[in-house]
Simulated assay, not measured.
Amino acid sequence: MPVIVLEPRDLFSSLSLARMCAILFGCLTFSLVASMEESKLSPLHQMLSFRILCMFTWCLFFALTLLIHVVNVIQFHSLVPISWKNLTVSVAALAALMTLSATLSFPWAVAGHGSVQPCAVAATVSSCLTFAAYVAEAYLIRTQAQDERGYMASVPGLLKVLQLWGGCEMVVLVVEQVQSYLREPVEDTTAMLWVSGTIYVVCLLMSLATVVVVLGDCAGRCPVPFDRLLVCFSLTGVLFYMVATILCFARVLGGRQQGKSPTEEMKMTWAVVVMETVVASITLLAYTVDLAFSFKLLRDRSQA
């Protein structure tokens, strides 16, 4: 079949320019980070894991955005066996959230005992610009005509992306705490941490399954009505995250009541617990609002 390329005016549209900026700044960011001197970075094991997460985020969404841009330019998206309009906004929204997390955590992760590296400052600024480009892309997709944007561009769809982001962040934060507590066991904390980790994994799998069903246009082939499945998932997420948030606050208060002179690693672990509490609260709010939308959708369809 002949290759069809976008017209020049479409190639240089606002949406295409936003994608190209995201590709450019994303490539610049991980290139700057890769050129940093490891000897001047923080020696803590936790910080190494955060740096790996940041690099993975920048590389992954650079590759996905580049692939989306190339497929869109040569007009091969009709051959992709998934919902293209839902895929583009999902990647843009998730990339914006993950890049924001990387931008905020990277300066903390690379904080060493010496002077700040110029590459670290430049990478942080470049990551901020990458985040702005992804936000612009998601906004431009949302402002398209109703028939050109899919379910994931709606408020309930974006809430599911937010839930997916929260689950991804939670798994990483829990893994960091497990590693820390294995080195320095804390009484009555490890059990709560395993309960929280199980909750996050279950909710992450539910969010991932929902997004996969929407991207694959499989809602009509579900063995149960999809709107009822959304209500069930949202209600489960609300209940689970309520428990996880309470456990997070309990661990935060428990960390505050530790010895008068905690070690440097204990301070870092307590900071990670605070981060987990913030992300858990945001994700709980996302599930609560999504539950309201799901109930409204179910009621409207039952009355139709």
Rank of each mutant, 00 (worst) to 15 (best):
T99E: 00
S90G: 11
P2L: 05
L6C: 02
G167A: 05
S13Y: 02
M20G: 11
M242T: 15
S14N: 07
M268S: 11
R9G: 00
P185Q: 03
V70T: 14
G150V: 03
S90M: 09
C203F: 04
M206T: 09
V186G: 03
G254W: 02
F233P: 01
R251E: 03
V178P: 02
V172C: 13
A111R: 11
K260M: 11
V121L: 13
R183Q: 13
Y151F: 10
S13N: 02
S101G: 11
A122W: 04
V212F: 12
C54G: 05
L140T: 05
T283W: 00
V5C: 07
V174F: 04
A18S: 06
W84C: 03
L129A: 07
L253Q: 10
L66H: 01
L208F: 15
V186H: 02
G114I: 04
R221M: 13
F249P: 00
C54E: 02
P223W: 06
E137S: 05
V278Q: 11
S207H: 02
H69A: 15
L285M: 14
V172P: 00
A250C: 14
V273F: 06
G112K: 02
C54S: 05
N86R: 07
M20H: 10
R228W: 13
E176R: 02
V89L: 04
V279E: 06
C232V: 15
C232D: 09
S302M: 10
A219C: 14
M1N: 12
I23H: 01
H77N: 15
I23Q: 01
D217Q: 13
N86Q: 09
E184M: 13
L60D: 02
L298K: 06
P225Q: 11
R149I: 02
S302G: 08
L104Y: 05
R251H: 06
F50W: 06
Q117A: 03
A122N: 06
L159G: 01
D10K: 09
R228F: 10
I4M: 12
L239K: 10
V116Q: 14
C203T: 07
S31K: 00
T29A: 00
A120H: 04
V224I: 12
